[in-house]
């Protein structure tokens, strides 16, 4: 009941022997020590555990790690480059999109999936993409502003990266 799991996490290829019943979120947090991904409910209700699998958002609390064979996983821990925050991380920081911050990793990853598929989303598209992510603090207005801000500065950040 153990399997060798080969996959990529935040750009690093890994092989780990894991039990078949291990949830992806526990693999990420307990085995690899990537504690950015949060657990906010007992399964599927809150979105705090959202990660990207092959660029698409997914609840890591309802995903068995062994089903991610060969997949490309990304978590909030891997977003910054050379100590520079990603556009969304800057958006949530500068626009006060995080209060207690517990929902933020999931919000950022769900937004990251949105911006990759739709770099210039309108407000309805942002609200729709974040519909499975619950925040008990902000009232969502600041979160939407954070994503809008990130969409605006994304090009700027890409230019900076090219220049450096």
């Amino acid at each position: 009941m153990k399997t060798v799991l080969s996959l990529s996490v935040n750009g690093t290829t890994r092989d780990d022997v894991i039990p078949d019943n291990m949830l992806l979120v526990d693999y990420l947090r307990e085995n690899i020590g990537l504690t950015g991904t949060k657990v906010g409910c007992d399964g599927g209700e809150c979105g705090a555990c959202t990660v990207l699998i092959n660029d698409r958002p997914r609840h890591s609390c309802l995903t068995l790690a062994v089903t991610c064979q060969g997949a490309r996983i990304e978590t909030v821990d891997g977003l910054s480059r050379d100590n520079r925050l990603s556009a969304l991380q800057r958006g949530f920081d500068e626009k006060l999109g995080a209060q207690c911050g517990f929902c933020t990793p999931g919000m950022i990853m769900a937004s990251e999936a949105l911006l990759r598929a739709n770099p210039k989303p309108d407000e309805a598209a942002i609200r729709n993409a974040l519909a499975a992510n619950i925040c008990r603090c902000t009232g969502y207005v600041k979160i939407i502003e954070a994503v809008q801000f990130a969409a605006e500065i994304a090009n700027e950040i890409a230019d900076e990266a090219l220049a450096s």
Binding site: D20, L23, D42, G43, G44, H59, L62, L64
Partner: peptide, 26 residues
Amino acid sequence: YLAGGSDLLVNIRRGIEQPDSLVYVN
């Protein structure tokens, strides 16, 4: 049988279902 798991894994975590094996169909 396990597909997306968005119902089954919730039920397993809540102890409503206790299968000893899963056949993943995706």
